[in-house]
């Protein structure tokens, strides 16, 4: 079930973020097996998905909408370069606006309204109290650049990937809640370049297979995969840019506070072909759940223990879990009776 956006929570300082019972129930738990293995775990994102689930619509709008949009505003005010679009990505940005407005107004008619009169569009975002009229395709008629304008109205990070020479290039995006990667540095990179630091997967041929698959995605056939890491505190902006501000928190986990401090961070990644520009929209929708909330589901608790216990060393390092991984495994053990 989906709870309407109402509350305003924080993802920094006092960390007032919490999940309702409904949000816990619909949390996209990412482990299908007791042992975590790298794979090209891509599957069709057939819409609409199960009612109320995170897969129901192309853009999942949930109870955290207002909070995440307020957090995004804070990040962009601190550092406007967290959003960028190379000049040749203008058509792709407008594709993104079209796709987002068209689907969101159809999927959430109580929250978003769109009227089209030729290229004159009238958009109302009742949640953020926006009421804008603009000429489709003419960026000068928007209050801010198109990537930022739409990016400020959807939950999750968005990257727009330009497709050329059989490869995908990270040429536009709004990235304010990344799991430790920098849009400013990775901008313009090819698919394999921006995955350069990922351990093991290159040798396994994961990226060769993924790239072949992704470049062949047709219009109206989005695909999805889940990715995961752990985060200390309900911090959305775990970017390299702000790492000096949050790095020390990785050392703050103790056996006593694991349940409330450590969050499973799951990214629902959706790739969707843009009709005019042929770019790929890559949306990275982040969900956070505290260990205390996660273990209210007994199956999740047991599996979480087994996955964490068997995690290969290079992944522990790459995901930045080195300093609290063992504390977490020990704490989870009590939910796995066999152990």
């Amino acid at each position: 079930m989906r709870t309407a956006p109402a509350k305003l929570e924080t993802f920094r300082d006092d960390f007032t973020y919490t999940n309702s019972k409904e949000a816990i129930e619909r949390f996209p738990f990412p482990f299908p097996e007791d042992e975590y293995a790298y794979s090209v775990n891509i599957e069709p994102h057939t819409l609409p998905g199960p009612a109320g689930s995170v897969n129901e619509f192309l853009f999942d709008i949930d109870e955290h909408y207002l909070s995440e949009m307020a957090e995004r505003d804070l990040v962009l005010k601190e550092n406007p370069k967290r959003c960028l679009a190379m000049p040749h990505m203008e058509p792709a940005c407008w594709d993104f606006i079209d796709r987002a407005m068209t689907t969101m107004s159809a999927d959430y008619p109580d929250y978003f309204k769109l009227e089209k009169n030729g290229d004159q569009w009238h958009w109302q975002n009742l949640l953020l109290k926006l009421d804008d009229t603009f000429t489709f395709g003419d960026s000068s008629t928007l209050p801010c650049p198109p990537m930022e304008y739409m990016g400020r109205q959807v939950q999750g990070d968005i990257a727009l990937l330009d497709q050329r020479d059989g490869d995908l290039f990270l040429d536009a995006g709004i990235v304010t809640c990344p799991a430790d990667w920098s849009l400013a540095f990775d901008a313009g990179m090819s698919f394999k370049e921006w995955h350069g630091p990922v351990p093991m997967a290159h040798e396994m041929g994961v990226f060769d297979r993924a790239l072949k698959y992704l470049t062949a995605i047709p219009v109206d056939r989005p695909v999805r995969r889940l990715n995961w890491t752990l985060t200390v505190n309900a911090r959305m902006d775990t970017s390299p840019e702000t790492y000096p501000m949050w790095g020390a928190e990785n050392r703050s986990v103790t056996p006593e506070n694991v349940g409330e401090k450590v969050y499973l961070r799951v990214e629902l990644q959706v790739l969707d072909r843009m009709a005019r520009s042929n770019a790929l929209m890559f949306s990275i929708r982040t969900y956070l759940i505290s260990m205390d909330d996660l273990v209210t589901n007994k199956d999740w608790a047991r599996r979480m223990h087994r996955v964490m216990k068997n995690l290969p060393e290079p992944l522990i390092d790459y995901k930045g879990l080195t300093h609290y991984h063992q504390i977490l495994v020990d704490w989870l053990a009590k939910y796995d009776p066999v152990n």
């Binding site: 370049e193 790492y243 000096p244 020390a248």
Partner: peptide, 26 residues
Amino acid sequence: GRHLLVRDHFSKIHRAYVGVQIDAED
């Protein structure tokens, strides 16, 4: 002025390697 760990991750746009604070955690 931060002390940066020099990583092997290279950007052709910046023609540079990325540096990340080495002592942010401790």
